[in-house]
Design a protein around this nucleic acid. Structure first.
Length: 422
DNA sequence: TCTGGGGTCCTAGGACCC
DNA sequence: TCTGGGGTCCTAGGACCC
């Protein structure tokens, strides 16, 4: 029989930190978002003392001090590297692996029977842990949504020891009855509130709801959820990634920014990031949106959100070309006498870059710029990001992120390797 | 100046995911 | 004092065309 397995790392960012710093094991630990703003990963011990997901760190300061919680800035370079190691292990088990997020993957599995599926699940869990040090949970079901339900129970019921196979029909009704509606994949806060008001409190209730009712009160996404809970596959396994539609680079600032020069430096840097990613994925962008925002939490300040989308013609992935257009957009939306908290750029209308000359408008200059970009990328890969920068601004200033306690990038920087002393 | 419907395309905003 | 970032999908509504 064939089934879908969801492999989900437990408290992924915290687990990455623990893999290199065993002293954190058993200790309450949290990892923060960019700018050290919110809690985005919590160890079980941190969950138990009542630190909620996504809570701003300043709201739980006293809790953290009272319990001696370890607090770390996020280290995406480390997490990204451990993520790809985890995905490589999964590919040893199946030709169909969908990398769903940094810490989750859907995998197609095949076995004689349910017992065989569960055995595979346990092997996956053991091998990922042995090769990466990351503990995972495995949920198995006939559809992605059922695999997610199974994963929820694998994580929350200790007696399952992190692996749950939900393919046997006899298990489905009791498992779905014990799945709160807000735990169903695709049901967020808003839908959960509305569904509960209509008496739908569990995954089982949604599975049993009439299609006409769902169609009238939800949308096609709701219909798909219900069908998937009944075992009808609506979401296929995307083991070949779909072409990307957009690339964004946006940040909140470390401190409020008011000058156009500082905003230019920030936007110039965001374009650099986005264009690097564009070239890495061999694509060209056709439009760019630039936006700036004031601080929505400062209720006494005048609020403003400005954004402008401009065409990139011809389509390009050359940093300096995109910067020119981005700065034009920024100047158009910039308003003096305001204090800004956040800005960003979004590249859209992406198409593959086949690297062919485009005779209609390609000039010798463009060809030279492409070669230059390739060289800059090589240098920055070899000697570290921002060894060579494009643009005329100083990419340094108060807009830069706060990051006070990042661990070393153990696996991606030679000078930050783990040192062993005897 | 009034009268109609159907189709497409685009955009903004909402909801959700991790 | 201090409140993340990068994505996708869906829908409603407006503009436009015939």
């Amino acid at each position: 029989m064939k089934a879908v397995a969801l492999i989900d790392a437990n408290n992924f960012y915290v687990s990455c930190e623990r893999a290199f710093n065993p002293r954190l094991r058993g200790e309450p630990t949290v990892v923060l978002s960019n700018n050290d703003g919110c809690v985005v990963s919590r160890s079980n011990e941190a969950k138990q003392i009542g630190i909620r997901m996504a809570v701003p760190i300043f709201q739980v300061r006293s809790l953290i001090e009272r319990h001696g919680v370890h607090v770390l800035s996020s280290n995406y370079e480390l997490y990204g590297d451990l993520s790809s190691r985890m995905m490589n292990v999964l590919e040893e088990f199946s030709p169909e692996v969908e990398r769903y997020s940094i810490d989750e993957a859907f995998v197609s599995l095949e076995a004689e029977d349910s017992a065989g599926l569960e055995k595979l699940g346990r092997e996956i869990k053991a091998r990922v842990y042995r090769y990466t040090g990351i503990p995972v949970s495995v949920g198995i079901g006939a559809t992605k949504t059922l695999a997610k339900v199974a994963g929820f129970h694998a994580k929350t019921l200790p007696q399952l020891e992190s692996v749950f196979d939900l393919t046997p029909a006899s298990l489905q009704v009791p498992a779905l009855r014990r799945t709160p509606i807000e735990e169903v994949w695709g049901v967020g806060y808003r839908w959960a509130t509305k569904l509960k008001a209509n008496g739908i409190r569990t995954a089982f209730d949604l599975r049993e709801a009439r299609d006409e009712w769902i169609r009238a009160n939800m949308n096609v996404a709701g219909l798909r959820m219900a069908h998937e809970l009944r075992g009808i596959r609506c979401h296929t396994l995307a083991s070949i990634p779909q072409p990307r539609r957009a690339i964004n680079s946006t940040r909140s600032f470390g401190k409020m920014v008011d000058s156009l020069d500082d905003l230019k430096a920030a936007v110039g840097t965001f374009v650099t990031r986005a264009a690097e990613k564009l070239r890495r994925e061999r694509m060209l962008a056709g439009v760019i949106t630039v936006f700036v925002l004031t601080d929505r939490y400062k209720l006494d300040d005048e609020q403003y959100s400005g954004s402008l989308t401009l065409q990139l013609a011809p389509m390009t992935n050359i940093t300096t070309d995109i910067q020119t257009v981005a700065l034009k957009a920024l100047e158009a939306i910039y308003r003096k006498d305001l204090r800004y908290k956040k800005a960003g750029v979004m590249l859209g209308d992406l198409v593959p870059d086949y690297g062919l000359p485009q005779p209609l408008w390609e000039t010798g200059k463009t060809e030279k710029m492409r070669e230059l970009m390739a060289k800059v990328d090589r240098l920055n890969r070899r000697y570290g990001r921002e060894t060579v920068q494009c643009g005329t601004f100083i990419s340094d200033g108060k807009w830069q992120m706060q990051m006070n306690s990042r661990s070393p990038r153990y696996t991606t920087r030679w000078d930050e390797l783990l040192k062993v002393t005897c």
